[in-house]
Amino acid sequence: MIDFATLEKGMDIGSTTIHVNRADLVRYAGASGDFNPIHWNERFATEVGLPGVIAHGMFTMGSAVQLVSNWVGNPGAVIDYQTRFTKPVPVADPEGSNPSDHAGTAVQISGAIGALDEEARTARVDLTVTLEGTKVLVKAQAVVQF
């Protein structure tokens, strides 16, 4: 367990990479109940003006927070979590690949302590979530209760 007293603003909590392929999007659609076809049908996605199938914003948000859950050791300690979705995460379906095995799109996630509230014993973790160096989530902040 992390000791709240040892935390300092600006401290890194680590980083990770999430890989997302078409099978992951189908799995997330089923688990969440969000069956918007822009997340699984290429024709529909391009017809509505997208570059192709894109990940659910909530897939990216939901997977990015795992860095915080694992760091603090208790996912129930995340009492507040917010983000703005700024850029789509395209998930390609390359010729000849198996959509379940393909490495997919790599989303980079890192986190740092953005603020500490000594009285409430909370730490705000600011997540940086990028795709090829461009932020896909903005103001991604998770508040952890100690």
Partner: peptide
């Protein structure tokens, strides 16, 4: 099972799920 399914879908690994 829904918690397990959703946790797997967001690639969560914490055993409490």
């Amino acid at each position: 099972e829904k918690i397990r399914e959703f946790a797997a879908a967001v690639k969560a690994t914490h055993p409490a799920h």
